[in-house]
Nucleic acid binder design. Structure first.
Lengths: 340, 340
DNA sequence: TTGAAAGCGCTAACAG
DNA sequence: CTGTTAGCGCTTTCAA
């Protein structure tokens, strides 16, 4: 296979059509000041030649690119995917296209320096604005607008979409207390992440509000992974006075709890109630109750905010709060009953 | 928020550093013919100014962009996501970055014309090559290499990674026959898709090889969706002589079968064996046996092929066949037993 | 209504 | 080792 064949440029179109490049450019950009028969002719030539304008060249000259950038830490993680779904939907409804950028290397992400690099890379050239997921940086230098989804930092200096993490955690804990639980274990998220802290705070405050004494032993140090949550669960269940319920700081952790429970022969929800945060699809098969963070809706909202910014509209609220919601999952329990 | 601040260019760096733009460019591109103290100084200035090179401008001048494009029909569909995971992994191990392009509009995809457009858009400007997932076009005009993952057309005029659909289907059917089934239902995929046809052929051939007469009634017209598979299942199970096993043409369909069976009170696998194609994560919770198509591996292989092509190496095999594999899933059955 | 020409930010010869 | 210069393909004045 040879690929040396030079791509068709606007020059080729102009030459074939017998007009100047500027006329072709006008047609391409939907300017009205072109004779309609000239326009028809050029359009025909474009089609015949299979011409597609050079994105790089176009981006360089014009300010408006109709392209939104998305910087995601990991393209294969359920969390990212949920957000991407929402972004996708909003993009479909807009006249912007989407350009997603990853290095594929998770380790490169999470550091502010690289985030800045990717934002600049996109925003200073080919995109009109960028959405950054789970950003760790407190600030970004960019000459086009950005919106963050679920930033790790508490008070970023840029517009963002955030979930009501504190209230969600409060609701979970109150729900568990309402079921009669008094000893409720908590599998925490990663320390450095703001939302993880807010969830812990919600858990603690709900207990205090209900007059239940806090027990440090009941807080296990998770890190949002299934694997660690399994370990934490075993740890919690081996306490002298083990918890009768577990609140896991995210859904991956909740799945980890489920797995550990299965290994230990602990039935959910009969022997132990389990609630997780976030809305990852597998949870429903495990009979786990979750706090839906509406990740897709966050992505959706972010795109809409960004488009407003791109259009020069001001945002009434720079931080868009998404209300979390407790969702009882019963699907798997139904399965289990059916199969008996 | 104002974003009017002009981005920092290579000119700014040159001016600040007191050198010419070409010297900065040399440093940027890792050329060795620069005095090391000049280099240090320039690097320092770049850092201080927070300069990031303009992707568009760079792409326009240099042939080598170290960027691979990925065109996906739907960014939120499990099938695409599996492939993306593999692509991601390969990208991480390479020195290429990844640029994913979607319009967010599923309806726009699937048509050859738009695919061509996106391929051109990326390949004629900012990427060194493009991977296209589930392409429908038989041919692409492009001046940089492309590789297709799981193309819909049987014999595309471009390199591709394909699964052994026929053999997989043969294996499934033989497996079911081996379990003692004689009446095996088949929920087909979309007609126009090559792989769907190959799966049907495998099913039919296995039956014929085993001396089982083909029954048109047992072939239900699916379309790779859960919803339709539910309908097909009801249809199959309401036959006078219903099947004792169902082979669904993909995993979504298999999940649909599961749902319908649950609604009808048919237990899987006790009352009916079900096998699906593809490897979507949820399947394992439903106790469904599947033929793993190793979608992630396909994405991984595609990147490696593409990089070879970009580097001018020739491919010994233009079509890379990935061996499918039957995987018995027992997880959910275990769950069900545990919970009794 | 159209064309000529300037230049976006960058890289790659070519000189020095 | 470094600077000067010529474009890459496109959009956008400015004239005609």
């Amino acid at each position: 296979m040879k690929h040396k064949k030079r791509a068709i440029t606007i020059q080729d179109v102009a030459k074939t059509a017998g007009v100047s490049v500027s006329t072709v450019s006008r047609v391409l950009n939907g300017k009205t000041d072109v004779a309609s028969d000239t326009q028809d002719h050029i359009l025909k030539v474009i089609n015949k030649l299979g011409y597609t304008s050079n994105l790089a060249a176009r981006s360089m000259r014009s300010h408006k690119k109709n392209l939104i950038g998305l910087v995601v830490p990991d393209i294969g993680f359920p969390y990212s995917i949920e957000i991407m779904k929402g972004v996708n939907k909003a993009i479909a409804e807009s006249n912007f296209d989407l350009l997603l950028y990853t290095t594929g290397d998770i380790q490169k992400n999470g550091t502010g320096l690289h985030e800045q690099h990717y934002v600049s890379l996109l925003n200073n050239s080919i995109t009109d604005g960028v959405i950054i997921v789970a950003s760790a940086a407190a600030e970004f230098i960019t000459n086009a607008p950005i919106v963050a989804v679920d930033p790790h930092v508490i008070n970023p200096n840029y517009p963002s979409v955030q979930g009501t993490n504190y209230h969600g955690a409060l609701e979970v804990t109150e729900y568990l207390i309402g079921l009669g639980h008094r000893r409720i274990g908590f599998i925490s998220g990663r320390q450095e992440i703001g939302s993880a802290g807010r969830r812990l705070k919600g858990y603690q405050d709900a207990l205090v509000n209900a007059g239940i004494e806090l027990d440090e032993e009941l807080i296990a140090p998770g890190d949002f992974t299934q694997k660690n949550a399994r370990k934490c669960t075993r740890q919690l269940l081996s306490l002298n006075d083990p918890p009768t319920a577990i609140f896991a700081a995210n859904d991956q952790s909740a799945i980890g709890v489920f797995e550990a429970a299965e290994e230990l022969g602990v039935r959910i929800p009969e022997d132990m109630s389990v609630v997780g945060f976030d809305n990852i699809s597998e949870a429903k098969y495990l009979g786990l109750t979750t706090v839906d963070q509406f990740l897709a809706d966050m992505g959706y909202a972010a795109v809409q905010m960004l488009i407003k910014l791109i259009n020069g509209e001001s945002l009434e609220l720079e931080i868009h709060k998404m209300q979390t919601k407790l969702v009882e999952r019963t699907s798997c329990q139904k399965l289990i009953r059916t199969a008996q």
